[in-house]
Design a binder for these strands. Structure first.
Length: 400
RNA sequence: GGUGAGUUAGUCAAGUGGCCAACGACGGCGGACUGUAAAUCCGCUCCCUCCGGGUUCGGUGGUUCGAAUCCACCACUCACCA
């Protein structure tokens, strides 16, 4: 049992610092029922979460399973500085109201994964504001510039003579101080957070709180393309707020290789269960598509419901396996006869009439499931189901 | 402040007076094959209802029958020097 817990905690992690300490905490939990705290920090800017973000949350949920109390920290104070990523996008400061709103929408999304009873949501302005100038000064005496410059992006910027604001040095210190105040046993974060996470250890030692947090870093999740990190701007993401049908379809469109990665980082299946699946696929007794469907179902159900997820699966089968049309699609209506190319543009199936013509020429366009080839076709009175490619549909009503 | 190099479609990148709506690569889209996987093969990839036409190559103006290509000025980026 303990061994399994350790394996599940380590699962998918990129790096663990002081894993012995984690093992000790787990042991204390299993043998004496002792709880411990795991801290994770989040930005208070508008949370538009995608699966990449949930990798951390998933790990926190695993910790909860094994006796952890989560310190879900919203960095409302530190957000005023902005983590020094070097991109130096001056941050707009959020009002107290905005921060509260964002925190609320975090909770809505986050508690689909985390157990609210074992989660404490905290704001770091609460203890950083009272620090005052002298507290701040004390904090800065714990560290020196040379060591600060060891941080990778500071190092690069210093060498390339790109400006570094003094306030940026404060950021890691404050993040570390959060761990002092919260007396965290463990902190988790992305690999890019290594320096800041280690600062927590350093400061806990400096402030002599009698413990040094262990650190667990999770890798960055790859996006749908399997190469670049999942991000909204790259358009290769699965948003936690995505519609069930989209979510299901997106997971299923992932490559087989990436599927295992997603299993490791996102599924609640245990490692041994996953091993069984892998073995089944390897020896050919289990079809990879089946395995992927299970994953898609699990993920869709997590953010919607099992019922809805099952419906999404059926819909998917209907549209793609059986080549039928979806049960629901966007509906449009126009008055008067309309040419097919214009109709396709108006329904948003195609970005321009030129593109519409090309699509028709290539046999990608269908009306009521019939392939069309006449790009000058006029649509008269009636209802039509327009289709481009395999996945773009729209219903058009012409009143002529 | 000085000197030099550069700015081309979603990205990278050819093109240095007409054959340029502009090579190529990547990405994207469509088709075939499939498990809407991967791999592979084929086609498309500025806009306009076809013929054909229109608007593009940092911006503005100019030279020319004709400019992405030449000239002038402006803007921005990078490198070296101060």
């Amino acid at each position: 049992m303990l061994q399994e817990a350790i394996r599940e905690i380590q699962r998918g992690s990129a790096e663990i610092i002081d894993s012995q300490r984690i093992e000790k905490l787990l042991k204390a939990y299993f043998e004496e029922g002792k709880n411990y705290t795991v801290k994770a920090g989040f930005d208070p800017t508008a949370p538009d979460l995608h699966l990449g973000h949930t990798v951390l949350l998933q790990k926190l949920a695993t910790f909860q399973k094994y006796g952890a109390k989560i310190q879900f920290l919203i960095g409302d104070f530190t957000a005023q500085i902005g983590d020094p990523t070097g991109k130096s996008a001056t941050r707009k400061t959020l009002s107290a109201v905005e921060i509260l709103e964002n925190a609320k929408s975090y909770e809505e999304q986050v508690f689909k994964i985390l157990d609210p009873l074992k989660t404490e949501v905290v704001f770091n302005s609460e203890w950083i504001n009272p620090l005052g100038a002298s507290g701040m000064l004390t904090l800065t005496t714990t560290f020196n510039v040379a060591r600060m410059l060891e941080r990778d992006d500071f190092d690069k910027r210093y060498k390339s003579q790109t400006p570094i604001a003094i306030s940026e040095f404060i950021y890691p210190l404050l993040q570390g101080y959060d761990s002092v105040h919260l007396k965290s046993d463990i902190e988790i974060g992305g690999t890019d957070q290594k320096f800041n996470l280690l600062m927590g250890r350093h400061l806990q030692r400096a402030y002599e709180i009698g413990k040094e947090q262990a650190v667990l870093m999770m890798p960055i999740l790859e996006g749908l393309d399997g190469v670049q990190k999942m991000s909204k701007s790259l358009g290769n993401y699965i948003g936690v707020a995505d519609a069930p049908n989209d979510m299901f379809a997106k997971v299923l469109s992932v490559s087989d290789e990436l599927m295992w990665r997603y299993y490791e980082l996102l599924s609640t299946k245990t490692l041994s269960e996953i091993e069984v699946l892998k073995a089944g696929v390897a020896e050919g007794s289990l079809h990879p598509k089946r395995v992927k469907e299970d994953l898609a179902l699990e993920i869709t159900a997590r953010f919607h419901s099992l019922e809805v997820a099952n419906a999404a699966k059926e819909e998917f089968e209907r549209v793609h396996a059986k080549n039928e049309i979806p049960t629901e699609m966007e509906e449009f209506s126009v008055d008067g006869e309309i040419s097919i190319t214009k109709a396709l543009v108006d329904c948003g199936l195609t970005p321009s009439t030129s593109q519409a013509r090309r699509d028709i020429k290539q046999g990608a366009a269908k009306i009521n499931q019939e392939k069309i080839s006449d790009e000058q076709l006029q649509l008269g009175n009636g209802e039509y189901i327009l289709q481009i490619g395999k996945r773009k549909f729209a219903k058009l009503k012409v009143n002529a």
